[in-house]
């Protein structure tokens, strides 16, 4: 079960995230739950693999907005970096950043699944 405490431990700026949710904890946690269920990170991986930087930018940009609004700082950071590179359609190896994002997301999923 996800709690605000767990998110804080994870490194999320829960103060900011909560204030954006009018300090409604249940609402905040539900939105974080939605972010966990989201498949755009997968889609970003697929697009990068296919070398489709346009599609990759769209996905990264959307994720950036989503993670940013929920103040999920650890996963926001690599996604933000990818978005800025993809905005200029930079040809580079995105796998370390993608792996970091996936790792952070996994960590969050584990937290959610732990007691």
């Amino acid at each position: 079960m996800l709690t605000v405490e767990k998110l804080k431990e994870y490194g999320a700026d829960t103060g900011e995230g909560l204030s954006r949710c009018m300090n409604n904890e249940a609402f905040y946690l539900r939105l974080v739950g939605m972010a966990l269920a989201d498949d755009k990170l997968e889609k970003l991986g697929e697009a990068l693999e296919a070398g489709d930087l346009d599609r990759a930018f769209e996905a990264a940009h959307a994720l950036k907005g989503m993670y940013g609004n929920l103040s999920l700082t650890p996963v926001y950071a690599p996604v933000y970096e990818m978005t800025e590179l993809l905005r200029k359609r930079t040809q580079t190896d995105y796998s370390p950043l993608l792996a970091e994002a996936k790792r952070q997301m996994q960590a969050l999923v584990s937290l959610a699944n732990s007691d």
């Binding site: 954006r20 949710c21 609402f27 939605m34 907005g65 989503m66 609004n69």
Partner: peptide, 15 residues
């Protein structure tokens, strides 16, 4: 297009 953004903003604006 992003449901989370919509919900979040909807929560705020719905006030």
């Amino acid at each position: 297009d992003e449901p989370i953004n919509r919900e979040l903003l909807g929560m705020i604006v719905g006030e």
